[in-house]
Design a protein around this nucleic acid. Structure first.
Lengths: 108, 108
DNA sequence: GTAGGTATCTTGTGATACAAGATACCGTGT
DNA sequence: ACACGGTATCTTGTATCACAAGATACCTAC
């Protein structure tokens, strides 16, 4: 999979999954990896960015056999951001598809 | 427009336009900008990469009033690459859309 | 106490888009 | 001759982000 494609997109994917349910980092990797490869070295810096920007809050919870889990929950601001970025992605993808399908606006 | 989204995608857009007709750099900027913002500082390094990789060849042609134009033409290898990357993009976009639309494979 | 699974986090590297500006060619007006 | 504006190409420095690899730590089972 082309690494470059993911730039900026993984952040939306994380926001989108979190809009569905609270998750901890490791869980997000597994959840998103069903569709798109993502590694741990990517998810943690990304989650820290989202927290710094106020889009998520965190809380710790014990786990059965293993280190405690840090859950991430969307804030209201994060929910709004998720909505906006999803729309932005949809518009972008539509533009690219239009270009790739040679709908070049009657280019001479 | 989110700059990050474009990473890797602009290269396909260029290949795709060139599959339709030969273009010079300045023309490609205008052509692609109808749908997606792209600047000159992006297109020229990108075109040099494509040439280094053997996906395009170039030829000079005079222009009516201005510097001579360097046209870019897809090679056979470039045509093949255009096809493959387009498919890769389509698959990727479909995966992202599936994730964003919460088709989370019955996640518990 | 050591091995293995779960989980978080950090560091260094590579790819690429962009702004800003340098360079150059040409026609027109003076 | 010379300056100007439009066309066109190219370079440099900066920022962002994903990743591999590894460090850290917690817990259970042996």
């Amino acid at each position: 999979m082309n690494i470059q494609f993911k730039k900026g997109v993984l952040e939306i994917c994380v926001l989108s999954v979190l809009a569905y349910k609270d998750c901890y980092g490791y869980e997000l990797v597994n959840e998103i990896s069903k569709r798109i490869d993502i590694s741990e070295g990517t998810i943690y810096p990304l989650l820290h960015r989202l927290k710094d920007e106020g889009y998520v809050t965190t809380y710790l919870q014990e786990s059965a056999g293993g280190a405690p889990r840090k859950y991430y929950r969307l804030t209201d601001s994060g929910r709004k951001e998720e909505h906006e970025r999803k729309e932005e992605w949809m518009r972008f993808a539509a533009s690219v598809n239009a270009l790739l399908e040679r709908k070049n606006d009657a280019a001479e």
